[in-house]
Design a protein around this nucleic acid. Structure first.
Lengths: 206, 206
DNA sequence: CCTATTATTAACAATTTTGTTAAACAAATC
DNA sequence: GATTTGTTTAACAAAATTGTTAATAATAGG
């Protein structure tokens, strides 16, 4: 079953991604990754040189996705609360595509300061732009008297907290391995999504 | 510098706690724990037999603390919003005593299903009682028309999300190693604490 | 003070883990 | 078809990691 192909690299990457997400950098072993990928473990080193390197390939891809999720929202000229609702739901849906990504990134970022530095460097310019946009929108609304005076930073953190924690909670309360997204889990996430929108919006409304 | 004492066990436990929290079960090595404790690494096995065992001693202590934090709140006959405010602040303050505990427990619980089972078994009866109390209080308030109709489960999750994420955020945005709780971090946490109370209460108020 | 018990260490050992190397194998190029 | 280039494997090796054991040091009890 030797593939002798360009996509061997991809197969290793996919196995690595699965195990790194499941067990973390320290918990996942290169031998196990190779075994899961169905290749000799020397091949893993042939393609990626070191475990660290392989991990970074996985991590940077995921981090880029996750960072991008913040980029989409808060553009356009729809009314504020509509825009806010859309942003929260969009962010939630992005996270929902792989339930275990948020916890993976948090875990690895908090554990190793180089990764933290890497992520912050990615996030900072995006967050700054987003916060500026939110701030100006919120100032306008506050002047109109339609929302409470809340700092944009706090609103953003509230959204992140509620959305991210939905998936952390899901990992604690349900079995999220593999593709078995049970009905109970689906209901839980739907419920949390709606709750998050309502909680944020109601907390702002006057 | 041989202590030859009863407290050697305690010294090892403290070193283990520090490294397990910092690096996780897989990342922390028993040799390093012994070195940090200043003892021969055979002694670690003499007292705790296995790494797994040592970890459980650390973990169960911390988990018990963390679980207990939910137990204090929502008793007494003060007005609902006062009670709620007090509960949120108390929970926040408990977590604040060791900023890195929430992430530690989440990480380990999500990674190993035995630990998850252990924690859930601890949490379930407490959460059930708490939710029942919240539910009856909230029903009364809803009837009075002082709060929106929100499920107690969602309110509890919202509080947990906002409070826990304050410390996860702190770990990402600040350097939380050791005891150097910087002024900036202190301000951040104070700000988040107040924000969390306001967000929750405003999201409920009609 | 002698003995039994407990605490501690040095030395060892099995296994795991990451990584290398040289050789086999396949594919493409000339 | 020979040569070159890139892919894959088996075998090896060093270091790390967890754990054991037997001998030594300290302590307590009689």
């Amino acid at each position: 079953m030797q593939s002798n192909n360009q996509n061997t690299e991809q197969i290793i990457l996919e196995a690595a991604e699965k195990l790194f997400i499941e067990k973390g950098f320290d918990g996942a072993k290169t031998t196990e990754i190779a075994r899961l990928a169905g290749v000799n473990h020397a091949l893993l080193h042939y393609y990626f040189r070191t475990k660290e390197n392989l991990f970074n390939c996985v991590f940077e891809g995921i981090a880029a996705d996750l960072v991008g999720f913040f980029n989409i929202a808060f553009e356009g000229e729809t009314p504020f609360f509509e825009k806010l609702k859309r942003a929260i739901e969009l962010h939630f849906d992005c996270l929902a595509t792989r339930i275990d990504l948020p916890m993976f990134v948090l875990r690895e970022v908090i554990q190793k300061k180089e990764r933290k530095a890497y992520l912050l460097k990615q996030i900072f310019p995006i967050a700054k732009r987003l916060l500026a946009k939110m701030h100006s929108d919120m100032k306008r609304e506050a002047k109109k008297g339609t929302i409470r005076p809340v700092k944009a930073q706090n609103l953003l953190l509230n959204i992140a907290a509620l959305n991210v924690f939905a998936f952390i909670g899901a990992e604690i309360l349900f079995d999220v391995k593999d593709e078995n997204i049970s009905d109970a889990l689906k209901r839980f996430l739907d419920d949390r999504k709606q709750n998050n929108v309502n909680t944020i919006i109601n907390s702002l409304k006057l």
